[in-house]
């Protein structure tokens, strides 16, 4: 069942006449992991921004559950329906890891006394101990920060997870664990996971792989298929 759909979507940066991509039509389903592969500057991140409701298409329609994102309250969409893992992480650096997660939960509307315990559980899932959870972000390593960004994206239990190079700073063991989490999110928890990546290990867990080159998306066979 399609969660997200792009219909004849084109995008150009503001003030630029050159489109990053044109007339793209894609469909993303719940319970599947997708990999978007391509060179730097090919438009992978831009696609994720459109899917995550951070930007709107210049032309065409991006819809979530049949409703156009352009007509939706995209703040609410980002807070409740989409979990975005940014390439630049965009964590609140003056807050602790735990505070980042709890704040994300509260922004999504989650309430109650159990949020802190849930946040610690989530952090433990990505390999962050309670001791490290209370540290300020800047006192943690790049790999740890990346895992916290992943945990934050999952904090509000979104239907869609859009991740931009989520394993870039991770060692092999941790990358494996994180990819396992993404795989489980898609296959066991029924989420729609979309990952922009260069990594072949990431593409290995994908149910569908799309390559993008000069604004043209092509489907490629996966190992799974």
């Amino acid at each position: 069942m399609s969660v997200l759909e792009l219909e004849n979507v084109s995008y150009a940066y503001e003030g630029s006449s050159k489109a990053v991509f044109s007339d793209v039509t894609l469909s993303f389903e719940a319970g599947k992991a997708y990999a978007i592969a391509g060179k730097s500057g090919s438009g992978k991140s831009t696609l994720l921004h459109l899917l995550g409701g951070l930007d709107v298409a210049t032309r065409g329609r991006v819809s979530y559950g049949g409703e156009s994102l352009a007509d939706m309250n995209r703040n609410r969409y980002r807070a409740r329906n989409a979990g975005i893992i940014f390439q630049g992480l965009n964590l609140l650096t003056n807050a602790s890891a735990l505070e980042n997660i709890v704040l994300s939960m509260r922004i999504s509307g989650m309430k109650g006394p159990g949020l802190k315990a849930k946040a610690l559980e989530l952090l433990a899932r990505v390999g962050i101990s309670p001791e490290k959870a209370s540290r300020k972000i800047l006192k943690l390593s790049g790999g740890e920060q990346q895992r916290i960004a992943i945990a934050r994206a999952l904090a509000h239990n979104p239907d869609l997870i859009a991740a931009d190079e989520p394993t870039g700073n991770l060692d092999k063991d941790t990358e494996y664990k994180i990819l396992k989490i993404f795989e489980d999110l898609a296959h066991k928890e029924g989420k729609c996971v979309i990952i922009a990546t260069h990594s072949k290990r990431v593409t290995a867990i994908a149910d569908e792989i799309w390559t993008v080159d000069k604004g043209v998306f092509r489907s490629v066979p996966t190992k799974r298929n």
Binding site: L54, N75, R76, Y77, R78, A79, R80, I84, F86, N90, L91, L92, T93, N94, L103, S104, I107, S108, R152
Partner: peptide
């Protein structure tokens, strides 16, 4: 600015 940008990306409303 970046803190505000991150909060907005997380879905926090401008009013909040």
């Amino acid at each position: 600015k970046y803190e505000i940008g991150a909060l907005r990306a997380m879905g926090m409303e401008k009013a909040m």
